[in-house]
Every structure is written in structure tokens, then in C-alpha cells.
């Protein structure tokens, strides 16, 4: 695995820092975020690995993972992080960058008709669209 200086200084890392308000350098990889995460089992890379890849500028690993879409934004990681790094903020920043840049929509209108009939609250539907679609 080759690490290059260019990769460490990628402008997207700066975007992520600005959007999330988090500084990944503060993380010392204790793994508390992963240990606290209620949905880590479904993730292909773990929350602390997301931060590690960002520290090393390995954006592809992060952007192509399902992790950022699995994150439930429950903020448990943020509440327990000993370094005050809000991983939920970082996940959100990564989603936003992908949705804006690539126009990926992870949720289709057709999917919604079904859940509405089951009584899913409006709030849930709205937030799902806010989170998963552009």
C-alpha cells in the first residue's frame, strides 16, 4: 500500500474537515466509536477505520464503503469519544459530498409508497430523503 504526500493533502480532506467541523488528526484510534456503534456489524469497514483511512488520505476506501450509508446518526460514538471527534458528523459530511458530487441517490420514490402504507411517520420519510438522496 503506497502512501503519497499528495494523497495526504487532498482538497477533499479539507472539504470533509470544513463540512464536518471535525479534525481527524485528533483521533488516536482507540476504537471507542466502533465499540459503541449499534450497527457496526452491518458495516464493511468499521467507524474507527473510516477515521484512520481519512488520516491517511485513502478516500476511495471510505467513499466506496457501505459504512457511511449504514450509520444511523445516533451520535453514540460522538458522545463517548475521548478525543471529542464526532464521527457521526464525519459520516454525514462524506454522504453529503457523495450525494452532491456524484448525484447518487440511495432512495427511490417508489420505495416510499410501500412504507407509508405501513404507517411510517412523515418525519422518518423526510429524514430518509434528506439523508440518502439529493
Amino acid at each position: 500500500m503506497k502512501v503519497s504526500t499528495e494523497q495526504l493533502r487532498s482538497y477533499i480532506l479539507k472539504d470533509i474537515a470544513v463540512i464536518s467541523g471535525e479534525n481527524v488528526v485528533e483521533c488516536y484510534q482507540c476504537g471507542k466509536c466502533t465499540a459503541a456503534c449499534p450497527v457496526s456489524k452491518a458495516m464493511d469497514i468499521l467507524p474507527h477505520q473510516v477515521v484512520r483511512f481519512l488520516q491517511l488520505g485513502m478516500l476511495d476506501e471510505v467513499m466506496e464503503s457501505n459504512t457511511i450509508w449504514i450509520c444511523a446518526s445516533c451520535f453514540t460514538c460522538a458522545g463517548r469519544c475521548p478525543r471529542d471527534v464526532d464521527v457521526a458528523n464525519i459520516m454525514e459530511a462524506l454522504r453529503v459530498i457523495l450525494l452532491r458530487k456524484r448525484g447518487v441517490s440511495r432512495l427511490k420514490t417508489e420505495d416510499v409508497r410501500l412504507v407509508f402504507s405501513e404507517g411510517m411517520p412523515e418525519q422518518g420519510v423526510v429524514s430518509a430523503f434528506r439523508k440518502f438522496a439529493r
Binding site: G31, K32, L46, Q49
Partner: peptide
């Protein structure tokens, strides 16, 4: 385990410890 504990859940007469081992990238 190279990692820390997220939470301890008392379950029956046991304590379920949820942690992580970052060396193997597995939750424990």
C-alpha cells in the same frame, strides 16, 4: 484487545461487554 469498550450490558447474571479489537478489525 487493542481497542476499548463501548458499553457494558448487564444481562441476567452476566455482564455483556461490547468492545473492539482494532488489530483484527472486529467488534468483540
Amino acid at each position: 484487545f487493542r481497542g476499548i469498550v463501548g458499553k457494558v450490558f448487564p444481562e441476567g447474571d452476566k455482564l455483556l461487554v461490547q468492545g473492539v479489537d482494532s488489530l483484527s478489525s472486529r467488534t468483540i
